[in-house]
Amino acid sequence: MQSSGSPAIQIDGLTKSYGTYDVLHGLSMLVNWGEVVSIFGPNGSGKSTLIKILATLSPASSGKIWINGLDSQEYSHHVRRNIGVITHDMMLYGHLTGLENLLFYGTLFHIQNVERRIIEVSESLNISSFLNKRVDTMSHGMRKRISLARSILHDPPILLLDEPDAGIDQIALDILGNLTMSSKGKRTIVMTTHNIEIGFSLSSRIAIISNGAISYIQESSSKTVDEFKSDYKSFTGVTN
């Protein structure tokens, strides 16, 4: 799936407007294969909008995005095979069991031997014990883990996570951390979060989005958490 030569994600002059209001304004960014990039920013800074556009859920007003070398607007079908997405919404059918949800999405992605793949993912995320429960009877943390399984079922080389740590229990948080750490070098992850400690510890690069553009991007190894918190305050004007 990974094409040689092209970066995982390339964003060039991305603008997204709602009426006369520009949420994103000329945002450019390059994410290399195997990187984990955390994007921080205050509420309303455009983090979720950026993830939505990268996920092909929302069209850009102007600018270009290439995912795995593919123009994301022109080849959105192919791009969707390359990405796994987690947002605030679980995207799970409450009246179906966890297994039925995964079978449904797995079949839509035309996964070969989908049952075996579900077993693999279930074991890695430790969800086998409640896979046959209906989603509407599961706890929030359980749903989040099923949603995580849904997003990696087709083994995408790129993961887009929009505040994946929001409102989840410690077990789900640990699983998310393990997934991110084990993906380092293998899977490219772009994650938005408000939690500086978590985002900082999981990422190879950290970025701040403000005034609709990436105003700061650094290797996480070049900073301590406290130094980054101080940078965050000076770039956004708010403490996290």
């Binding site: 996920a55 092909t56 859920l57 079908h77 192919h78 969707r80 095979r81 990405i83 997405v85 947002t87 919404d89 679980m90 995207m91 799970l92 059918y93 409450g94 999405y105 839509l108 992605f109 035309h110 849904r150």
Partner: peptide
């Protein structure tokens, strides 16, 4: 719209 499953459909490679 409940749980935004429409986004789940739109994120799949289904036309």
């Amino acid at each position: 719209q409940e749980n935004n499953t429409i986004h789940g459909l739109l994120l799949s490679p289904v036309s």
